[in-house]
Design a protein around this nucleic acid. Structure first.
Length: 554
RNA sequence: GGGCAAUUAGCUCAGUUGGAUAGAGCGUUGGCCUCCGGAGCCAAAGGCCGCAGGUUCGAAUCCUGCAUUGCCCGCCA
């Protein structure tokens, strides 16, 4: 609707500019918005004020000229000028009724945009080190990343999801040594206090038991030092499998898993360092090799090869991001914890140094989650190894509630996650509210089917019977769905979808309480069944973008 | 000390990227089932958009300064 109307206005603006002898001059883009106040109509534009400077005319005069062009066009019922020069347009009721037919006929394709124009985008998220189970913070990143990929696909991008496994570096050795220690304790050795620098948490004790059960005593005639590698390999493999399971339970399946270790093994890290050297973007100092990121806007230079010869995590990360680009992705989106925000400039600097336009790289920073229970903070301390795992949360509140809560706020906004609230089956709980709307619609459709009422084809129903303000408002809301998808994609903000489905649910619940869909009036019933069928479709599309189910009964 | 971000109703947060009288949920108060699912609906109260300047037709939104809060500042990952 908006698109068609925008075209109208663009043409009117061209005409008016011509009349003023300014044809072909650059003019500001025509932007339509939906006014907050209903009395200002369905769409409004400030183009007359924008043109005032270009045409050197009074904005209201320009608005009047544009208005004259717009009147009597199909669909447009009323054009008015308000305030300093806003042009408010009201569409005819019939045009909205027809719009409902279009929405129905498009079905699942409604809201499919060509905004992305098929461009290839990679969304990388979670990417937690395989040193322990996923916790609730990872859960938020997972929900955001997965939802973003879904939204981007809807918006016309080709989106691939990827998990980058940090399976290299000294943390891996620490993990192996941690497991080895737990294992030896299990065998009855007294080794003293468990080192603070080792990975805390009982999961390693469990893992040690599992190791013992599977492999028995592997230290009988071996030096424990020689076995660190085996323990490392075992721990990271089992933990990564666990992470995979946890994500599957959360409804998340990655298209691809990338291994940091493989970038070292394939020589890609060396290659990228060589290229940086060739481009004279690195230098040696204090026996280490530094990347001159400060030349590209970073605060200071960063080490890529330490003085002991070991390449840093940053070095492999450069190779990884270059590899993404080389794989043909037009846009790389990384979802990171907000505590890593300082890391953004150095990756951008690295891309720039490699001659890659940094604008193809975006980072979505996800803020911490505060876990509450009945409003009281739940103690969480990674140091003591006491964290609430994603699995525990999903087991307790369910996949849908967890995902919905994670997507209720802007990613970079702090999030309070109340376990009791997420579990409660009451009006306090927003996820039940929206799912209930869908279930209710399904219930009505079941009822009508039981009563032997045939749901008519769209073109058989008389949609002109949908005359109430609530009905037209709901059609308008449904009509705005594509726009919501587009802005969610543009700004990488899934919460816009969450708000949208909540709004739509509120409109439907309110409508339901005032009106009966199934009545003695056969024609009206037919039209209203079309209306709620369309609503059900929109809920399903919205839920799909959030990764939650659309229950037919609850 | 430097950097990044935040500050909107009692609480938790939206705010269409500069638009018209700033919105929602929860909480509070009071109403609504003879009826398609009450996991719902309706209504009321609640605001100096942190403070002070600036930019312009117009600012919660952009700029500057200040205050407060969080995060980051390793040859860890």
């Amino acid at each position: 609707m908006k698109e068609r109307l925008t075209e109208y206005v663009v043409k009117a603006v061209e005409q008016v500019c011509g009349d003023y002898g300014r044809a072909g001059e650059p003019v500001p883009a025509v932007v339509l918005e939906q006014p907050k106040e209903k009395k200002f109509g369905d769409f409004a534009t400030n183009i007359a004020m924008q043109l005032a400077g270009v045409l050197k005319k009074n904005p209201r005069e320009i608005a009047a000229a544009i208005k004259a062009q717009l009147e009597n066009l199909p669909d447009i019922e009323l054009v008015s000028i308000a305030g300093p020069g806003f042009i408010n347009m009201t569409l005819s009721r019939a045009s909205w009724q027809q719009r409902l037919g279009v929405i129905c006929r498009q079905g699942r394709r409604f809201g499919d945009l060509d905004y992305g124009a098929g461009r290839r985008v990679m969304v990388e998220f979670v990417s937690a080190n395989p040193t322990g189970p996923l916790h609730i913070g990872h859960g938020r990143g997972a929900a955001v990343g997965d939802s973003l990929a879904r939204i981007l696909r809807k918006a016309g991008f080709t989106a691939i999801t990827e998990y980058y496994v940090n399976d290299a570096g000294n943390q891996m050795e620490t993990l192996g040594r941690s497991l080895l220690w737990r294992y030896r304790e299990l065998l009855g050795e007294s080794l003293g206090d468990y080192p603070e620098t080792f990975y805390q948490g009982d999961y390693l004790i469990e893992l040690a038991k599992q190791f013992l059960q599977e492999k028995g005593n592997v230290l009988e005639d071996a030096d424990p030092e020689d076995k660190v590698g085996e323990f490392t390999e075992y721990a990271s493999r089992v933990i990564l499998d666990g992470i995979r399971d946890d994500l599957a339970g959360f409804g998340i399946h990655f298209d691809n898993w990338a291994s940091e270790k493989s970038f070292f093994q394939d020589g890609k890290v060396d290659d990228v360092i060589r290229e940086l050297r060739h481009r004279e973007m690195v230098y040696e100092q204090d026996d280490a090799l530094w990347f001159a990121s400060s030349r590209m806007g970073d605060e200071k230079d960063r080490v890529v090869v330490r003085s002991n010869g070991v390449k840093t995590y940053f070095a492999s990360d450069i190779a990884y991001h270059k590899d993404k680009h080389d794989r043909g992705f037009d846009w790389m989106i990384d979802v990171w914890g907000a505590d890593h925000h300082g890391y953004v400039p150095r990756i951008k600097a690295a891309l720039q140094a490699l001659g890659i336009d940094e604008s193809c790289f975006s980072v979505v920073l996800v803020q911490l989650v505060s876990l509450l229970r009945d409003g009281q903070p739940v103690a969480m301390s990674t140091r003591a190894g006491q964290f609430v795992t994603l699995r525990e949360v999903v087991d307790e509140v369910g996949k849908d509630a967890a995902r919905f809560f994670f997507l209720m706020r802007r990613p970079d906004s702090h999030l309070d996650f109340d376990l009791e609230l997420a579990k409660s089956q009451s009006n306090e709980n927003p996820v039940y509210y929206v799912q209930y709307a869908h279930a209710r619609i399904c219930s009505i459709l079941r009822k009508s089917s039981e009563a032997g009422i045939r749901v008519l084809q769209v073109n058989q129903a008389d949609l002109s019977l949908l005359t109430s303000a609530e009905e037209i408002e709901m059609i308008k809301k449904m009509d705005s769905f594509p726009h919501v998808v587009e802005t969610a994609a543009r700004y990488l903000e899934p919460h816009r979808i969450t708000y949208y489905v909540s709004d739509l649910a509120a409109m439907f619940h309110s409508y339901y309480n005032k009106n009966r869909v199934i009545s003695d009036d056969r024609d009206l019933t037919g039209a209203r069944l079309i209306l709620i069928t369309a609503l059900r479709q929109i809920f399903q599309l919205g839920f799909d973008l959030l990764g939650i189910d659309a229950p037919t009964s609850m």
